[in-house]
Amino acid sequence: MTSPPPLIEQHVLEYPGGYTRSVGTAVSRYLTGLRDGVIVGVRIGDGRVMVPPTEYDPETGAALDEYVEVGPAGTVVAWTWVSEPRSGKHHLTKPFAFALVRPDGADVPMVHVVDVAAADEMAVGMRVMPRWASERVGYVTDLDAWVPISDGETPSAAAVNTAEVSGEPVTGITVPIRLEYEINAGRAPSKYLRSLAEHKIIGQRAVDSDKVYVPPRGSDPTTGAPTTIEVEVSDVGTVTTFCVVNLPGLSEFAPEVPFVCAQILLDGSNTPWFGLVQGLPADEVRMGLRVQAVWADVLVPDARSIKWFEPNGEPDAPYDTYREYA
């Protein structure tokens, strides 16, 4: 018998709107410079000019404040080729080079991109100049790319910025970071989640004790030993403790506040289950309340198959029966 394929879901890790970064003195000088069409570095403790600048020496951590305008032309000191730019990450849409470029007047090369048509146009030692974005907002891509300079050519000054920005120094940037993952539930949780789709709750019993874990995670946390014995538990349980939530918009199954979020000890299980309690006013929910799962109309291998719990009419459980779980 072959086991069913693992449960896998796509997951996106992204702070909505992007990280809001305040940039501090040195990065402000750098980004403000890029916005204004110049490259700013800083003189470090050993006398070299480093770009991008930092507020502190890269070797000693000592404070730095001697900013130096460098470029505009520069020299490629190392490069690699990106044959497939990634949408939403790279700002260039055609294949390009990442390079270490040392601007004239700087001693330290900086990481940025070089825009040429093909990898065979790249070489260490090649001379490049900035291609400035026409709309510059105080972001690292205001320098759109370095591009080759032909012999005898002189880089011209950056064109007038077409973006509507103030002349004030750049103090902050917003950085979008969207990462995609393919998450698998694991063996034990998959069995449990699949049981929900069959209107059952399957947990696992620890090998070394009689304790039943629901949801199971695949190991007995007290010993680290795999839990391999499957046990069906009831969809009826006892509220061991709870809180009344007044923050709206937290759960699709509790559109209105107040709602109750409870730890529920299912009959036959030894670990609390976190669930919603509905079907009675929030101020009547109490510890010891006996409740039964309310299942969704369409069952899926997902925690959402149980919408919430409602009182089942049984008398409250005595405190001593669940004290060690509260």
């Binding site: 690699t80 270490l100 990481v111 690292v140």
Partner: peptide, 23 residues
């Protein structure tokens, strides 16, 4: 990498290693 001046350009771990190899 530096969250202000490098990471927003998205050079991957391999890209950066390739720069070292190039150097």
């Amino acid at each position: 990498t530096d969250p202000y001046t490098v990471a927003p350009l998205w050079p991957s771990m391999v890209d950066l290693a390739a720069l070292q190899a190039s150097a």
